[in-house]
Design a protein around this nucleic acid. Structure first.
Length: 276
DNA sequence: TGCCAGGCCGAAA
DNA sequence: TTTCGGCATGGC
């Protein structure tokens, strides 16, 4: 593969783990170590090897967009060290040791996690794909069509009948309500950004269809509030699967990140699945 | 075919 | 405050 026009950065995280851990639903695996994502109205191709990550963008575009998007400059090793307090948390952190938390676009993150509720990941991806191809804008990259995520403004102009094509069930109403709330200012991303965590969480949950889980995912993955995900809540969920010692949970500033580790570790290892 | 999915709402207890 | 049924739909 010709990587001549790619921008190269030292490998400080795993693209594969980061994209495929359930925090984003719109990426395409072209082949091993080769991915496409569409964000910020652009198509980005990524290639990773042992030492480097190659991005199909200019250095200035990287600085402007992707450095923050991939949360490149945060010290995840320090966070991991702070998080690990027992064998379970260590296993969880080791399991997803290459994960970075993406800083996704606010509206896309909110809409995606509204759609995610009581749904499985393949179907979430399908619905979001359909949403994009139906109402997003086409971008051609290497002779292939990709589609941007439709803005709240675009979706707010649609009706439930228009959204029926998604076959998203009752989630369509929640999506439409949220889009309208963004357009009319009831949901104000800039205002939410500067609020403290409990206030912003309470505020976003005033909207129908946005409960605790959707709010936490939105605040963590879309608002970049790195302390958004209450790791104690996830510890309790994991505990339902796990019979080991769960004492010594640590609710550090960045502990929310490891909900990914906890969730995937518990799931992939099928901890306790036979009991419930 | 039947169970369940990274939930939320609203009513009842 | 907690519990529970209903909700649309399709992946497995």
């Amino acid at each position: 593969m010709n990587l001549e026009n790619f921008y190269k950065i030292p490998k400080s995280f795993s693209v594969m783990q980061t994209l495929d851990c359930g925090q984003c639903f719109r990426f395409e695996k072209i082949e091993e170590n080769n991915y496409i994502i569409v964000a910020h109205n652009r198509v980005l191709e990524l290639v990773e090897d042992e030492n480097y990550i190659y991005l199909s963008c200019t250095p200035s575009e990287y600085m402007e967009i992707w450095e923050e998007y991939f949360d490149v400059n945060r010290d995840y090793d320090a966070i991991r060290t702070d998080f690990i307090t027992d064998d379970f948390t260590k296993a969880a952190a080791d399991f997803g040791s290459g994960i970075h938390i993406l800083k996704q676009e606010e509206w896309e993150a909110l809409a995606s996690f509204i759609i995610s509720q009581c749904n499985n990941i393949p179907r979430i991806k399908n619905i979001i794909h359909k949403l994009s191809t139906s109402f997003g804008q086409e971008i051609i990259y290497k002779d292939k069509s990709y589609f941007t995520f439709p803005s709240a403004t675009v979706i707010a102009k649609l009706s439930l009948e228009d959204l029926a094509v998604l076959k998203a069930g009752y989630r369509s109403e929640y999506l439409l309500l949220a889009a309208n709330a963004v357009v009319n200012g009831d949901i104000d991303f800039k205002a939410l950004k500067v609020m403290d965590l409990p206030t912003s969480r309470k505020k976003i949950m005033e909207n129908k269809g946005i409960g605790a889980k959707v709010a936490d995912c939105f605040l963590l993955f879309g608002m970049g509030k790195m302390d958004a995900f209450p790791v104690d809540t996830w510890m309790k969920k994991a505990k339902k699967f796990y019979s080991g010692d769960m004492s010594g949970e640590k609710y550090g500033k960045y502990a929310g990140i490891y909900q990914q580790y906890i969730f995937y570790y518990a799931k992939e290892n099928k901890i306790g699945n036979t009991e419930s």
